[in-house]
């Protein structure tokens, strides 16, 4: 009987890094107070980054369905299909501010949507902190580069380039 008690206590002590859950004075496991409210817990103000990222995925997804399907339809199906695409076709489209805004919106939403999706995949699957950090740095660099380059091209596109 005494041997059993000792082993049970040893297990309990080992289970929580030296903090004894129960002893002679506390025959039942002590229920610790729920996690303390710290600065990191988040204030009562609504939202934090994870919540906004989650909302962004839903909202950008809805908008992207329209933007991307419309884009594919115009580029590949309607009016002669893929054979009509050339420098002149793109130049003609980007002459209108409507298509500039369309493409800009699509670029930003698709890149951020995809990057956030990959961020969650990296968070879920990377096993070591170092791997996770560098994969995310690579992802952010690629995203920023693509978004900035695309934006630059849309705004500074010159149809008369030789």
């Amino acid at each position: 009987m005494s041997a059993e008690t000792t082993s049970a206590e040893a297990t309990a002590a080992g289970a929580s890094d030296g903090v004894t859950l129960y002893d002679v004075d506390n025959p039942a496991p002590v229920i610790e107070a729920p996690r303390k409210r710290t600065k990191k817990t988040g204030s009562a103000s609504r939202g934090n980054f994870e919540m906004q990222a989650w909302l962004f995925m839903r909202l950008s997804g809805i908008v992207l369905v329209v933007l991307v399907l419309g884009h594919l339809l115009i580029q590949l199906v309607l009016d002669g299909g893929v054979s009509k695409i050339g420098f002149a076709f793109v130049a003609g489209r980007w002459a209108s501010p409507f298509w500039q805004v369309w493409d800009l919106l699509m670029l930003w939403l698709a890149m951020l949507h995809g990057a956030n999706g990959l961020r969650t995949v990296i968070n879920d699957y990377a096993q070591r902190d170092n791997t996770r950090f560098w994969l995310k740095m690579l992802l952010y660099t690629a995203t920023v580069f693509t978004v900035l380059l695309g934006t630059l091209v849309i705004f500074t596109f010159d149809p008369n380039i030789s």
């Binding site: 817990t41 988040g42 934090n48 980054f49 994870e50 919540m51 990222a53 969650t120």
Partner: peptide, 13 residues
């Protein structure tokens, strides 16, 4: 607020 944590409900896929 507790479940609004980084490891809260938003990690559900």
């Amino acid at each position: 607020e507790i479940l609004n944590d980084k490891d809260g409900v938003w990690r559900c896929r």
